[in-house]
Design a binder for these strands. Structure first.
Lengths: 369, 369
DNA sequence: CCTTTTTGCACAATCGATGGTGCAATGACT
DNA sequence: AGTCATTGCACCATCGATTGTGCAAAAAGG
């Protein structure tokens, strides 16, 4: 650390040190210096000084002047499941690759909170916003529109701007088919009343999945009773209660389950925890989400993995193109067989041994409450 | 939308509309107007106009002027597992509660990337940085120090600033004890050679966990062979390979496994996927991380859940206090019995039905490659 | 040697919000 | 009526980087 003068160096500091004007320093450091006919030697000097003093531009000042910050926003319902955390991870990588900085906010599937969080992000002059899994994408659209911020919907579609989403109908069909195929034809045949769907609500994705589910049931099992659809929202607890209620009445579970998301699946886990003596050996579960651990549960679990990379790539592509009329772009999801551990973004990471810091353990640790 | 003049309103716009000066508008809208003796009626007028034009302050300008942005940074190794995603979720909630805006970056456990990401965050004038699970916390410290940014270590300790971490030794002991207790005393007794630890590397946490593991083995089983420690880093793939190698040689797995993190556990899943005919019915696994789905695998899985809320609360408390000499603050982790589905931050969310947008499905979806 | 062109850079305005300072208008008081 | 205090607000510099413009000095051309 050469210079530790407590405060960050600015172009004015470098201007004094180099004997040139702030505008020259700025031009050199932001690459526009050739256009401004700055001498090579002047540029060299300034770059040397910048290096030496570890200059980095103040992005706020830059953003203020340019009306763009280099920040790209991602609005998420929640972080805490494998689908969204994986999405955040991939988003981060893609944004960084473009030399920009990701900023993520979660809005809890609450339309009002979605608009507020979008406003907050916009107040930092974000250059673009990816609206993911929003309950009210059009509400967020209005906020972005007003601020002139480019935006796109992911995962859940809106009507006011383009959307990139999974092909939920196809996915719903594929998952339902796979569930039914898990039951050997020679065993007691599966009745339509034994195939249930839990979770989801009245959003586009759930509707499409349910539509696929019902269509396949009619085609393959010849029936599709309404009672088999239990849209318990996106709450683990409500899902648990729905399972408890079913079990209470029927004294067993349906043989085949279509679970709308890993969050609903967590509700099923809670049910399992309450029934330690139930073996669950006869059931087959399909889940519209992928989680590696869920794939190895003690019964067959077929999962759908939405193609996050493809969806985000497509979204970035659309963002860079001139805007068009709102369209929905479908991306095919993938069916994941039971007991499958996919590789993911984590596999791209190097596994680096830390340089051992012998001091680290010498500090007397003092436990606190 | 009353005013959709494409660009966001500024205090200058409101100044013209209200007939007062920009500084008056500013004072009214940031709450310092009483100190400036602005008339109640003037303030009312300005607030009305601000509301009407949906004014929100430009945070970049504000931050530039104040040398603070309202942004609070979180530096993470990765997003994509339940521990870190849950941490991000809780962090977000806590930062929002303080009226600030979280900004998260992940640095892949790479010391150089950690410093770079910290620099990037700092260039946005973040007010504080939470350094979580960093491979080289002291390197990040240097960067923060130089910029005068408050910071604290979480999860992995550094020597230059205070740290809030799990009590890994106690956790390692508790987990090892619980694993051993899973084996009934009347069955063939567990030998020290049958209890293995996989994963982790030469970082503080792994060392402490291993220390706890070995101590308990010596106390309870009377032995602790070096061969039982397999520090395979934080890579799922390396962990898989280690399991394959063991299995190749021994033609079976150890009866008792201590897995250092959910990431390593994913490596074990990959091994399981490659051995579909193995029942895994005899083994007991302890994992130093909590994942709800892992808790219900077809063999007993005991997990450790680090107390994220307590760790972050403590970290926020320390941040607000005057700085002290670097200390390590230990937080007790919790042991989670097999087949446990904990409630989490998601349970706090309301589950809101979306307002149905009949238009949404009327857009002809056109599939793309 | 004088004019024209080119080179190399400095100057100053700007982005939006903030806060110190100054000053007119009003009211209070002798 | 004259002095002084108070009220209510406007003015202006500032944060750091960017960019259009202007203008000397050096080089080229006649």
């Amino acid at each position: 650390m050469k210079n530790d003068s407590k405060k960050k160096a600015t172009i004015y500091d470098l201007s004094v040190l180099s004997g040139s004007s702030p505008s020259t320093v700025s031009a050199v450091l932001n690459g526009t210096w050739r256009k401004r006919r700055i001498k090579e030697s002047t540029a060299d000097l300034i770059r040397r000084l910048a290096e030496e003093h570890q200059y980095t531009a103040n992005r706020q000042a830059q953003g203020l002047r340019n009306a763009r910050s280099g920040l790209v926003g991602l609005l998420l319902p929640i972080y805490d499941n494998r689908y969204f955390s994986s999405l955040a991870q991939t988003f981060e990588a893609m944004v960084r690759e473009k030399g920009r900085c990701p900023i993520v906010a979660s809005a809890s599937r609450d339309p009002e909170e979605e608009r507020e969080k979008a406003e907050t992000l916009i107040s930092y002059s974000i250059d673009a916003l990816f609206i993911c899994g929003a309950t009210d994408p059009d509400g967020v659209h209005a906020v972005c529109e007003k601020a002139g911020v480019k935006h796109i919907n992911i995962d859940l579609p809106g009507t006011k701007t383009s959307s990139v989403i999974s092909d939920n109908y196809a996915g719903g069909r594929a998952l339902t088919e796979a569930i039914i195929h898990q039951f050997p034809a020679d065993k007691p045949p599966l009745a339509p009343e034994e195939v249930f769907l839990f979770g989801g609500r009245n959003d586009h994705n759930s509707r499409e999945r349910i539509r696929g589910f019902r269509a396949v049931k009619r085609e393959m099992l010849g029936g599709d009773p309404d009672a088999c659809i239990q849209p318990t929202g996106y709450s683990p607890e409500k899902t648990r209660i729905a399972f408890e209620a079913f079990y209470e009445k029927q004294d067993k579970l349906p043989r085949a389950l279509f679970v709308n998301s890993s969050i609903n699946f967590e509700g099923f886990l809670r049910f399992m925890a309450n029934h330690p003596h139930e073996t669950f050996s006869e059931i087959v579960v399909g889940c519209y989400d992928y989680d590696p651990f869920a794939s190895f549960l003690p019964f067959p679990v077929i999962m759908i993995r939405q193609d996050i990379e493809a969806m985000l790539s497509e979204a970035f592509r659309l963002m860079e193109e001139p805007p068009t009329a709102p369209r929905i772009h479908l991306v095919a999801p993938k069916l994941i067989a039971p007991r499958t551990a996919l590789t993911g973004p984590l596999d791209a990471l190097k596994d680096i041994e830390p340089t051992v810091q012998p001091g680290a353990d010498l500090i007397a640790p003092r436990a606190e409450a």
